[in-house]
Every structure is written in C-alpha cells, then in structure tokens.
C-alpha cells in the first residue's frame, strides 16, 4: 500500500517536474549561448520571457520622455549582455538568425522593427 502511494507521489512529482521544465522552456528554442551571459538579467528569466516587450515599451517611454536611464534597461544593454558571437568571433547582428532577439521570435513569427533604428550589436564594441 505504502509502496503504491510512494510510487504515485513519485510519479506525480516527476510529472510536475517535467511540466515545469516544459513550461520554463515554452516557446524557446534554447539559444546556444544560453548561460554564457554575464551577470543577471533585469528580471528573472520566466518573467522576462513573458514580459520583456512590455518592459521595453515602458522603458522606452521613460527614457525618451523622462530621460530616465537606469542601468541595464536600455535596449542596447539587452543586446550587449545577450550578445551571441558569430563564426568570426564578433557579435552577430539581427541579420543572423542566432541573434538573441531572434531566437524565439523566428519560431513564434513575431516581427519587431526595433533594429531598423537601434543597433543590434553591443554598444561597447563601437
């Protein structure tokens, strides 16, 4: 009896864990550069996956209209920290499908025009 219960609990836990993992990876083609990013994101990964667009738009208005420029929140900060190196060792641009901002967008058919104005490569590497 206890054996069965343990088994059920174990199965339940396993299922939950699998679902959790799946949920965490939802819509994400794991980027090859995952984990190579230094430091911490501006918020935790699940939140970012779901809310980065609102965050960016909010930040955009705060910066452009209010001159509020918190560290790490600018679009260029995102692409700087999330830079993905190409074959030549230099960070790739959005023209390359490996670019961080395309990893999920390409699979979910989201199109953003941000990089027609904003540079898609790290700012420090002028």
């Amino acid at each position: 009896m206890t054996g069965v219960r343990t088994l059920l609990i174990a199965l339940g836990l396993a299922a939950a864990a699998v679902t959790g993992v799946l949920a965490a990876g939802e819509g994400t083609a794991p980027s090859p550069a995952f984990r190579q990013w230094p430091g911490e994101c501006v918020a935790d990964a699940p939140f970012m996956r779901r809310n980065h667009m609102d965050l960016l738009k909010h930040q955009r208005d705060d910066t452009v209209h209010g001159g509020i420029r918190p560290a790490n929140h600018s679009l260029n900060a995102c692409v700087t920290c999330h830079a993905v190196k190409g074959d030549d060792g230099h960070p790739v641009t959005v023209a390359d499908s490996r670019h961080f901002c395309r990893t999920c967008h390409d699979t979910t058919a989201v199109r953003v025009d941000c990089f027609s104005c904003h540079t898609s490569t790290p700012g420090v590497a002028k």
């Binding site: 209209h65 509020i68 918190p70 560290a71 790490n72 600018s74 700012g123």
Partner: peptide, 14 residues
C-alpha cells in the same frame, strides 16, 4: 560618447 558603463543608480533626468 555612446560608451556607457551600466553601473550606479538610476537618475530621473528630465
């Protein structure tokens, strides 16, 4: 110009 170290607190600039 254009090269900024992202460190330190945020300022309400305008």
């Amino acid at each position: 110009p254009g090269i900024t170290l992202y460190a330190g607190p945020a300022a309400a600039a305008a």
